[in-house]
């Protein structure tokens, strides 16, 4: 069979390969210099490189998707470092998009989630960060930090304690969770008056806790919450009977609804807020800090 395309002429493959290798080395060199440059010089009004669509990036990265993901995280880190934390809206949105892209390219890479969850909400990119973290939550089920960040963002930035508590509870179910987190979550539940939810949550936790010290801590908080829940319900009953809320827990003793005001296991004193909810001067903390909240 003759060569149909007449491409048989002399072709210097060695020369071509050397050229290709040089181009490759040159590209890497340029990239390194570029990286070092933005690392050492603060950026002033530098145009941000356009980011490709997720689909385009995924296909064009071939089998080097994780490498491209690393590259975007590096870009974000360099930009953040170069700006020394003084981010404008454009940069924040660009970083959110770059981190979203990095997370799509390598969904098991934790850094895009941590950086997005820790840094970007403080610069206003709350709605952009939530989908990134939700993506991470799907892929990294054992990582307590991702639902923890989500919980915090909902609680603090979105002013949505119910969703916040849901994600925080999710974080506490992770096997790697630090021991302080469950107690913190229960406190968040109780501060909003969701005592029944907090009690149910802590009871579950008490049963599953392995460490006797942690078990003791949970038991104490549980005792306090049960009392507070009871007092709150009695206050409503008082209102039904006398047409007004009790001013202090002692009012319940006066009318004979309870024999005495139960002591706070944390050493504080229970009191009624104006809306009839119960809190304590100890703030459910071991040591008294500033007294009344």
């Amino acid at each position: 069979m003759k060569d149909p395309l007449h491409l048989q002429g002399p072709f210097d493959l060695w020369g071509t390969s050397v050229h290709l290798l040089w181009i490759l080395v040159f590209l890497i060199l340029i990239l390194t210099i570029h990286q070092l440059h933005i690392r050492t010089t603060p950026i002033k009004g530098q145009a941000l490189s356009p980011l490709p669509k997720e689909e385009v990036a995924k296909i064009s990265a071939l089998e080097f998707k994780s490498l491209l993901s690393d590259y975007y995280v590096m870009e974000v880190a360099q930009l953040f470092g170069g700006k020394r934390g003084n981010l404008g809206k454009t940069e924040t949105l660009w970083m959110a998009k770059a981190l979203d892209l990095a997370a799509s390219l390598d969904p098991y890479y934790t850094e895009p989630y941590y950086f997005a969850g820790n840094v970007l909400p403080w610069y206003g990119a709350v709605d952009q960060v939530i989908p990134i973290l939700k993506k991470g939550e799907r892929f990294k089920k054992d990582d307590w930090r991702i639902p923890f960040y989500l919980g915090f963002i909902y609680y603090y930035f979105k002013k949505d304690p119910i969703t916040g508590a849901k994600y925080l509870a999710m974080a506490t179910r992770s096997p790697s969770v630090p021991s302080y987190l469950p107690l913190l979550v229960a406190r968040l539940y109780s501060e909003k008056g969701h005592y029944s939810a907090a009690i149910a949550y802590l009871e579950g936790l008490y049963r599953s806790a392995q460490d006797p010290k942690v078990k003791g801590l949970i038991k104490k908080r549980l005792q306090a919450l049960i009392i507070m829940d009871r007092l709150e319900k009695l206050a409503q009953e008082y209102k039904n009977r006398y047409g007004k809320l009790p001013k202090k827990p002692e009012d319940l003793v006066k009318v004979g609804m309870i024999r005495k005001v139960p002591p706070d296991p944390y050493g504080g004193k229970f009191y009624f807020k104006e809306d009839g909810t119960v809190w304590t001067t100890s703030s459910l903390r071991e040591r008294k800090t500033t007294g009344k909240r």
Partner: peptide, 20 residues
């Protein structure tokens, strides 16, 4: 050196570069 430009778990980046 390249991995050092990243943040957090740079060993992951080193492994990515190595396998690539």
């Amino acid at each position: 050196a390249i991995a050092d430009l990243s943040i957090g778990n740079i060993i992951k980046v080193t492994q990515d570069l190595g396998l690539a």
